[in-house]
Computed example of a mutant assay.
Amino acid sequence: MAKAASQIDMPVGVIVRKTPGVTRWARWNWRAVAVLPGAGPADWQELRREGEAVEYHAATLPLTLWADETEAYMVNLSDGQPSIYLVLRNELKGDTPLNAVLITASPFQGQDYADTGEEIVEKIPMTEGLIAWVRDFTLKHHQHEVFIKRRRDRKQTDLVEDGKGDARIRQTSDVFRAPRRVLQ
Protein backbone atom coordinates (compact mmCIF):
# COMPACT_ATOMS: atom_id res chain seq x y z
CA MET A 1 0.00 0.00 0.00
CA ALA A 2 1.81 3.11 -1.24
CA LYS A 3 1.23 6.43 0.53
CA ALA A 4 3.57 8.40 -1.68
CA ALA A 5 6.20 7.73 -4.30
CA SER A 6 8.90 8.01 -1.63
CA GLN A 7 7.59 5.46 0.89
CA ILE A 8 5.82 2.11 1.09
CA ASP A 9 4.31 0.20 4.05
CA MET A 10 3.65 -3.45 4.87
CA PRO A 11 2.21 -4.85 8.10
CA VAL A 12 4.68 -7.31 9.64
CA GLY A 13 3.92 -9.54 12.61
CA VAL A 14 6.61 -10.26 15.18
CA ILE A 15 7.06 -13.65 16.87
CA VAL A 16 8.62 -13.49 20.35
CA ARG A 17 9.74 -16.58 22.27
CA LYS A 18 9.65 -16.75 26.08
CA THR A 19 11.96 -19.33 27.68
CA PRO A 20 13.03 -19.86 31.29
CA GLY A 21 15.99 -17.74 32.37
CA VAL A 22 19.33 -19.34 33.12
CA THR A 23 20.16 -17.19 36.14
CA ARG A 24 18.29 -16.38 39.31
CA TRP A 25 18.25 -12.68 38.36
CA ALA A 26 16.41 -13.20 35.07
CA ARG A 27 13.34 -15.33 35.50
CA TRP A 28 12.44 -15.29 31.79
CA ASN A 29 14.38 -14.84 28.57
CA TRP A 30 12.49 -13.01 25.82
CA ARG A 31 13.79 -13.19 22.25
CA ALA A 32 12.35 -12.19 18.88
CA VAL A 33 12.65 -15.19 16.55
CA ALA A 34 10.62 -14.59 13.36
CA VAL A 35 8.50 -12.20 11.32
CA LEU A 36 5.17 -12.72 9.55
CA PRO A 37 4.89 -10.43 6.47
CA GLY A 38 1.32 -9.25 5.85
CA ALA A 39 0.05 -10.42 9.26
CA GLY A 40 -3.17 -9.22 10.84
CA PRO A 41 -3.37 -7.34 14.14
CA ALA A 42 -2.26 -9.15 17.29
CA ASP A 43 -1.55 -8.43 20.93
CA TRP A 44 0.58 -11.15 22.52
CA GLN A 45 -1.48 -14.00 21.06
CA GLU A 46 -0.06 -17.40 22.06
CA LEU A 47 0.93 -19.45 19.01
CA ARG A 48 2.80 -22.47 20.34
CA ARG A 49 3.85 -23.98 23.66
CA GLU A 50 6.64 -26.55 24.17
CA GLY A 51 7.13 -27.25 27.86
CA GLU A 52 8.02 -23.93 29.46
CA ALA A 53 8.88 -22.27 26.13
CA VAL A 54 6.06 -20.22 24.64
CA GLU A 55 5.94 -18.38 21.31
CA TYR A 56 3.71 -15.33 20.95
CA HIS A 57 2.55 -13.24 18.03
CA ALA A 58 3.55 -10.16 20.02
CA ALA A 59 2.45 -7.39 17.68
CA THR A 60 1.92 -6.38 14.09
CA LEU A 61 3.78 -3.23 13.18
CA PRO A 62 4.08 -1.34 9.89
CA LEU A 63 7.41 -1.82 8.13
CA THR A 64 7.94 1.45 6.28
CA LEU A 65 10.55 1.80 3.56
CA TRP A 66 11.71 5.31 2.67
CA ALA A 67 13.37 6.35 -0.59
CA ASP A 68 15.92 8.42 1.37
CA GLU A 69 17.10 5.33 3.30
CA THR A 70 18.02 3.13 0.32
CA GLU A 71 21.73 3.19 1.15
CA ALA A 72 20.96 1.59 4.53
CA TYR A 73 18.76 -1.04 2.85
CA MET A 74 21.59 -1.83 0.40
CA VAL A 75 23.93 -2.41 3.36
CA ASN A 76 21.35 -4.70 4.96
CA LEU A 77 20.74 -6.67 1.76
CA SER A 78 24.48 -7.14 1.18
CA ASP A 79 24.84 -8.69 4.65
CA GLY A 80 25.12 -12.48 4.83
CA GLN A 81 21.66 -12.66 6.44
CA PRO A 82 19.41 -9.64 5.66
CA SER A 83 17.43 -8.80 8.79
CA ILE A 84 14.61 -6.78 10.29
CA TYR A 85 15.41 -4.83 13.46
CA LEU A 86 12.77 -4.88 16.21
CA VAL A 87 12.82 -2.24 18.94
CA LEU A 88 11.36 -3.39 22.29
CA ARG A 89 10.82 -1.37 25.47
CA ASN A 90 10.52 -2.77 28.98
CA GLU A 91 7.02 -2.64 30.46
CA LEU A 92 6.60 -3.55 34.11
CA LYS A 93 2.99 -4.69 33.97
CA GLY A 94 1.22 -8.01 33.48
CA ASP A 95 2.58 -11.13 31.84
CA THR A 96 4.11 -9.25 28.89
CA PRO A 97 7.00 -7.15 30.11
CA LEU A 98 7.97 -5.95 26.62
CA ASN A 99 6.31 -3.48 24.29
CA ALA A 100 7.08 -3.75 20.56
CA VAL A 101 7.66 -0.19 19.41
CA LEU A 102 9.14 -0.25 15.91
CA ILE A 103 10.46 -2.47 13.16
CA THR A 104 12.86 -1.29 10.49
CA ALA A 105 14.93 -2.68 7.65
CA SER A 106 17.63 -0.05 8.24
CA PRO A 107 20.63 -1.30 10.21
CA PHE A 108 21.62 2.33 10.81
CA GLN A 109 18.30 3.11 12.54
CA GLY A 110 18.56 -0.14 14.53
CA GLN A 111 22.03 0.91 15.69
CA ASP A 112 20.73 4.34 16.72
CA TYR A 113 18.15 2.73 19.02
CA ALA A 114 20.72 0.26 20.38
CA ASP A 115 23.13 3.11 21.24
CA THR A 116 20.70 4.73 23.69
CA GLY A 117 20.63 1.72 25.99
CA GLU A 118 16.97 2.44 26.82
CA GLU A 119 15.52 -0.05 24.34
CA ILE A 120 16.23 -3.65 23.38
CA VAL A 121 17.01 -4.13 19.68
CA GLU A 122 16.53 -7.62 18.24
CA LYS A 123 17.84 -8.68 14.83
CA ILE A 124 15.38 -11.03 13.07
CA PRO A 125 16.21 -12.76 9.75
CA MET A 126 14.05 -11.64 6.81
CA THR A 127 11.96 -14.12 4.87
CA GLU A 128 12.69 -14.60 1.15
CA GLY A 129 9.55 -12.66 0.17
CA LEU A 130 10.51 -9.76 2.43
CA ILE A 131 14.03 -9.71 0.99
CA ALA A 132 12.57 -9.47 -2.53
CA TRP A 133 10.16 -6.69 -1.48
CA VAL A 134 12.94 -4.60 0.11
CA ARG A 135 15.31 -5.29 -2.81
CA ASP A 136 12.73 -4.23 -5.44
CA PHE A 137 11.97 -0.99 -3.58
CA THR A 138 15.68 -0.26 -3.07
CA LEU A 139 16.62 -0.83 -6.71
CA LYS A 140 13.73 1.35 -7.87
CA HIS A 141 14.59 4.32 -5.61
CA HIS A 142 18.35 4.13 -5.02
CA GLN A 143 20.41 6.99 -6.44
CA HIS A 144 24.16 6.65 -6.18
CA GLU A 145 25.76 9.73 -4.64
CA VAL A 146 28.97 10.84 -6.30
CA PHE A 147 31.78 11.50 -3.83
CA ILE A 148 33.16 15.03 -4.14
CA LYS A 149 36.38 15.72 -2.33
CA ARG A 150 36.53 19.11 -0.68
CA ARG A 151 39.52 21.32 -1.41
CA ARG A 152 41.20 23.65 1.02
CA ASP A 153 41.16 27.39 0.54
CA ARG A 154 44.51 28.90 -0.43
CA LYS A 155 44.16 31.56 2.26
CA GLN A 156 46.89 31.43 4.93
CA THR A 157 45.37 31.79 8.35
CA ASP A 158 48.56 31.58 10.41
CA LEU A 159 50.02 34.99 9.50
CA VAL A 160 48.28 36.98 12.28
CA GLU A 161 48.19 35.89 15.91
CA ASP A 162 44.72 37.15 16.59
CA GLY A 163 43.22 36.51 20.01
CA LYS A 164 46.31 34.91 21.50
CA GLY A 165 46.81 35.44 25.21
CA ASP A 166 45.03 37.85 27.51
CA ALA A 167 43.86 41.09 25.91
CA ARG A 168 44.40 43.02 29.17
CA ILE A 169 48.17 42.62 28.87
CA ARG A 170 49.69 45.36 26.71
CA GLN A 171 53.14 43.96 26.29
CA THR A 172 54.36 41.61 23.58
CA SER A 173 56.90 39.73 25.71
CA ASP A 174 54.72 36.98 27.17
CA VAL A 175 51.20 36.73 25.86
CA PHE A 176 50.40 33.66 27.98
CA ARG A 177 51.06 35.11 31.43
CA ALA A 178 48.18 36.17 33.68
CA PRO A 179 47.65 39.84 34.47
CA ARG A 180 49.11 41.03 37.73
CA ARG A 181 47.01 42.60 40.35
CA VAL A 182 47.99 46.18 40.90
CA LEU A 183 48.66 46.96 44.56
CA GLN A 184 47.57 50.40 45.73
Score class of each variant (00 low, 15 high):
Asp9Arg: 11
Met10Ala: 12
Met10Glu: 07
Pro11Gln: 09
Pro11Phe: 05
Val12Ser: 05
Val14Thr: 07
Val16Ile: 11
Arg17Met: 08
Lys18Ile: 05
Pro20Cys: 00
Pro20Val: 03
Gly21Val: 07
Gly21Lys: 08
Gly21Glu: 03
Gly21Cys: 07
Ala26Cys: 05
Ala26Val: 13
Ala26Trp: 07
Arg27Val: 10
Arg27Ser: 03
Trp28Ala: 10
Asn29Val: 09
Trp30Phe: 10
Trp30Leu: 00
Arg31Tyr: 08
Arg31Asn: 11
Ala32Asp: 02
Ala32Cys: 11
Ala32Ser: 06
Ala34Phe: 06
Ala34Val: 05
Ala34Ile: 02
Val35Ser: 03
Val35Lys: 00
Val35Ile: 14
Leu36Gln: 13
Pro37Met: 05
Pro37Gln: 06
Ala39Phe: 06
Gly40Pro: 02
Gly40Ser: 12
Gly40Trp: 09
Gly40His: 13
Pro41Asn: 09
Pro41Cys: 01
Pro41Ser: 10
Ala42Pro: 10
Asp43Ala: 14
Asp43Gln: 11
Glu46Gln: 15
Arg48His: 14
Arg49Glu: 09
Arg49Tyr: 00
Glu50Lys: 10
Gly51Glu: 06
Ala53Gly: 00
Glu55Val: 03
Tyr56Ser: 01
Tyr56Thr: 11
Thr60Arg: 01
Leu61Ala: 03
Leu63Cys: 10
Thr64Tyr: 01
Leu65Gly: 02
Ala67Arg: 02
Asp68His: 08
Thr70Phe: 05
Ala72Phe: 02
Met74Cys: 12
Asn76Arg: 01
Leu77Ser: 06
Leu77Phe: 07
Gly80Pro: 06
Gln81Asn: 08
Pro82Met: 12
Ser83Asp: 10
Ser83Leu: 08
Val87Phe: 06
Val87Asn: 06
Leu88Phe: 08
Leu88Arg: 08
Arg89Thr: 04
Glu91Val: 13
Glu91Asn: 12
Lys93Ile: 13
Lys93Gly: 04
Gly94Ala: 08
Gly94Glu: 11
Thr96Asn: 13
Pro97Ala: 09
Pro97Leu: 04
Asn99Gln: 10
Ser106Arg: 00
Pro107Ala: 01
Phe108Thr: 15
Phe108Asp: 14
Gln109Asp: 01
Tyr113Lys: 07
Ala114Lys: 10
Asp115Trp: 07
Thr116Pro: 00
Glu119Arg: 11
Ile120Thr: 12
Ile120Asp: 12
Val121Cys: 04
Val121Tyr: 01
Val121Pro: 00
Glu122Lys: 04
Glu122Ser: 10
Lys123Leu: 09
Lys123Thr: 15
Ile124Asn: 06
Pro125Trp: 02
Pro125Leu: 02
Met126Glu: 02
Met126Tyr: 01
Glu128Cys: 06
Glu128Thr: 09
Glu128Arg: 10
Gly129Gln: 10
Leu130Trp: 06
Ile131Lys: 08
Ala132Thr: 08
Ala132Leu: 13
Ala132Ser: 13
Val134Phe: 05
Val134Tyr: 05
Arg135Met: 10
Arg135Gly: 05
Phe137Cys: 09
Leu139Ala: 13
Lys140Trp: 09
Lys140Ser: 14
His142Cys: 08
Gln143Pro: 03
Gln143Ala: 12
Lys149His: 11
Lys149Val: 12
Asp153Leu: 13
Arg154Ser: 12
Lys155Asp: 09
